[in-house]
Simulated assay, not measured.
Amino acid sequence: MKLDDVYQIVKLDSQESVNKLLEHGWKLLKIDTYSSTDDRYLERGVFQNSHPYFILGATKEIYYSYPPTMISEHHYF
């Protein structure tokens, strides 16, 4: 998918939700990790909590055929 063709982007935390969208033509654009820490551990670079999140994109046609509202979790960009 070309960047010009991307109509909608969503950020998801759930692998189940990601798989549902991928099955309906959405494209995985990025996988990253969200990390949070307590200030007490910041100097040591120790993260207390981290989890992956997924950025998916869809063309206009795919978005209207299977919008992210079909799943319970979604964050629009």
Rank of each mutant, 00 (worst) to 15 (best):
M1F: 12
M1I: 09
M1T: 11
K2F: 10
K2E: 15
L3Q: 11
L3C: 07
D4S: 13
D4Q: 13
D5G: 02
D5M: 07
D5Y: 02
V6A: 08
V6L: 12
Y7S: 06
Y7M: 04
Q8C: 13
Q8N: 11
I9W: 01
I9N: 01
I9L: 00
V10H: 05
K11W: 05
K11I: 11
L12C: 02
L12T: 03
L12I: 03
L12D: 01
L12G: 04
D13Q: 14
D13Y: 15
S14T: 10
S14Q: 13
Q15R: 15
Q15T: 13
E16N: 09
S17I: 00
V18R: 13
N19M: 11
N19D: 14
K20R: 15
K20T: 10
L21W: 03
L22M: 07
L22G: 06
L22S: 09
L22H: 03
E23C: 06
H24A: 08
H24E: 14
G25V: 06
W26D: 00
W26P: 01
K27T: 11
K27I: 11
L28Q: 01
L28W: 01
L28A: 01
L28C: 01
L28H: 03
L29P: 00
K30Y: 09
K30M: 14
K30A: 08
I31P: 03
I31V: 15
I31W: 05
D32R: 08
D32G: 02
D32H: 02
D32M: 04
D32V: 04
T33K: 12
T33S: 15
T33P: 03
Y34G: 12
Y34S: 13
S35A: 11
S35G: 14
S36A: 09
S36K: 15
T37Q: 12
T37S: 10
T37E: 01
T37R: 07
T37V: 04
D38R: 14
D38W: 08
D38I: 13
D38Q: 15
D39I: 05
R40S: 10
Y41I: 09
Y41N: 11
Y41T: 09
Y41P: 02
E43W: 05
E43K: 14
R44Q: 14
G45I: 03
G45F: 06
G45L: 08
V46L: 12
F47S: 04
Q48G: 13
N49V: 08
S50Y: 08
S50A: 09
S50R: 08
S50P: 02
S50L: 04
H51L: 08
H51F: 14
P52V: 06
P52A: 10
F54H: 02
F54W: 08
I55P: 02
L56D: 07
L56W: 04
G57V: 00
G57I: 00
G57N: 00
G57T: 00
A58D: 03
T59I: 03
T59F: 09
E61S: 04
E61Y: 06
E61M: 04
I62F: 07
Y63W: 11
Y63N: 11
Y64M: 05
Y64T: 01
Y64D: 06
Y64S: 07
S65L: 06
S65K: 08
P67W: 11
P67R: 08
P68F: 12
P68A: 10
T69V: 07
T69K: 05
T69R: 09
M70D: 13
I71A: 02
I71M: 01
E73S: 12
E73L: 01
H75Y: 05
H75N: 02
H75E: 14
H75F: 13
Y76K: 09
Y76G: 02
Y76V: 04
F77K: 11
